[in-house]
Every structure is written in C-alpha cells, then in structure tokens.
Deep mutational scan, measured.
Amino acid sequence: HFTSQQLQELEATFQRNRYPDMSTREEIAVWTNLTEARVRVWFKNRRAKWR
C-alpha cells in the first residue's frame, strides 16, 4: 500500500511522463522512500489502468 503522499508524487510524475526511465524511477524511489522496482510496477499498472 502507498501513502497519499507517495501516490501524489507518483501521479504528478505520471501526468508529466508515462514512461519514466531508470534514473527518473530511481529519483522517484528516493523521494517516495520506495524501491525502484515498486515504482516500476506502479507505473506499469498505472499505464494499464490509464488505457
């Protein structure tokens, strides 16, 4: 589960860029205190939901 702060950060990034690269995902991981893998999976799932 994600905190509302984490989701806000993830959503804001998603609005700007639906396909963040590795370095962007790592930055998000640092800001949100999540692993890069969790961030990558979140984006994958979010893109699926967005379609």
Rank of each mutant, 00 (worst) to 15 (best):
T24Q: 14
W50E: 14
L34E: 01
F14E: 03
T24I: 08
H1I: 11
Q8F: 11
R16V: 11
T13R: 15
W50P: 06
A12N: 10
T13A: 15
Q6T: 06
Y19E: 04
F14K: 02
E9N: 11
R40Q: 06
E36P: 07
T3I: 04
T13Y: 15
Q5M: 12
W31K: 15
T13K: 09
E27H: 10
T35Y: 02
L34V: 07
D21S: 10
W50R: 06
S4W: 14
E26R: 14
Q5A: 12
E27Y: 10
D21W: 04
N33R: 07
E9V: 15
Q6P: 02
K44G: 05
I28Y: 02
Q15R: 10
S4T: 12
V39P: 00
F2D: 02
A48R: 14
A12T: 09
R51L: 14
N45T: 09
Q15S: 10
T3H: 05
R16E: 09
T24A: 12
K44W: 09
E27F: 11
D21H: 05
P20Y: 03
H1M: 10
E11R: 03
F43H: 00
E11C: 07
S23D: 08
W50F: 09
Q8W: 12
N17V: 08
T3E: 04
A37T: 09
A48Y: 09
T3N: 08
A29N: 01
D21R: 05
E27W: 10
F14W: 05
P20W: 04
T35K: 03
F2K: 03
V30W: 09
Q5W: 15
E9C: 15
N17Q: 06
I28K: 01
R25P: 01
E26L: 14
S23W: 08
K49I: 14
R47E: 02
E9R: 15
L34S: 13
R51F: 13
E26I: 14
R25Q: 03
R18G: 04
I28S: 00
H1D: 10
V41F: 12
N45F: 13
N45I: 14
L10A: 02
W50K: 06
T32H: 07
Q8R: 13
V41I: 14
T3R: 04
H1R: 12
F2M: 10
V39H: 00
E9H: 14
T32G: 03
Q15W: 08
Y19S: 05
N33D: 09
V41T: 12
Q6H: 04
R47S: 02
L10F: 02
R38V: 15
M22S: 08
R51Q: 10
Q8P: 01
K44Q: 12
E9D: 13
W50H: 07
A12V: 08
E9F: 15
R16T: 10
R18I: 05
F2A: 03
R47W: 04
H1F: 11
K49L: 12
F43M: 03
D21P: 06
R18A: 09
L34F: 02
T32D: 01
Q15L: 11
R18E: 05
K44L: 08
L7D: 05
F43G: 00
V30E: 13
S23C: 09
N33C: 07
E11P: 00
L34C: 06
W42L: 02
R40A: 08
Q6I: 07
T3A: 04
I28G: 00
R51E: 12
F43K: 00
V39L: 03
I28C: 03
K49G: 07
A48K: 14
F43C: 01
F2G: 02
R51N: 09
L10G: 00
L10Y: 01
N33E: 08
E36L: 05
R40C: 06
K49Y: 09
A29S: 06
T32A: 07
Q8T: 10
T24F: 08
N17H: 07
E36R: 02
K49F: 09
W50D: 12
R51H: 10
A29F: 02
A12K: 13
E26T: 12
V30K: 15
R16C: 13
Q5L: 11
E36D: 02
W42P: 00
L7Q: 07
Q5H: 12
E9L: 15
V39E: 00
E9K: 15
E26F: 11
L7C: 08
D21Q: 06
E11K: 03
H1P: 13
F2W: 07
W31S: 15
T35C: 06
Q5V: 10
R47H: 03
R18F: 06
V39N: 00
E11W: 05
T32L: 15
R47G: 01
T3Y: 04
K49H: 09
E9Q: 15
T32M: 13
T35S: 10
R38D: 15
T3C: 05
T24P: 01
L7V: 09
F43I: 01
R46F: 02
I28L: 13
Q8I: 12
A48T: 08
Q15I: 09
L10K: 00
V41R: 15
R38T: 13
N45H: 14
Q5T: 11
S4H: 13
L34K: 04
R25I: 14
W42K: 00
S4E: 13
S4M: 12
R38N: 09
A12L: 11
A48N: 08
P20F: 03
T13F: 15
H1A: 12
R16G: 07
N45V: 11
Q5S: 11
S23I: 11
F2I: 10
F2R: 02
Q6S: 04
T3G: 04
K44N: 07
R40Y: 07
V30F: 13
L7Y: 07
K49R: 12
A29H: 01
W42M: 01
F43Y: 06
L34N: 06
D21G: 07
W31G: 09
W31P: 01
R46D: 02
Q5P: 06
E11T: 02
R16N: 09
N45P: 00
R46P: 01
W42E: 00
E27C: 14
L10C: 02
R25Y: 07
S23L: 12
P20A: 06
R38H: 11
K44S: 09
A37Y: 13
A12M: 11
P20D: 02
Q8N: 10
L7T: 07
V30M: 13
A12S: 10
N17F: 06
M22P: 06
N17R: 03
Q5D: 10
D21T: 09
E27R: 13
T35V: 04
F14R: 02
E27Q: 14
E36H: 04
A37E: 14
A29I: 04
E9M: 15
T24K: 08
L7E: 10
W31C: 08
R46G: 01
Q8G: 08
R40W: 05
L34Y: 01
N17I: 09
K44V: 11
T35D: 09
N33Y: 06
R51V: 10
R40N: 09
W50T: 07
A29C: 05
F43D: 00
V30G: 11
Q6M: 07
E36C: 05
R47T: 03
W50Q: 09
R16I: 12
W42F: 04
N33I: 04
R47M: 05
I28H: 00
Y19N: 07
L7N: 07
W31D: 09
T24R: 08
M22F: 14
N45S: 08
N17L: 07
N33A: 07
L10H: 02
F14P: 01
N33H: 10
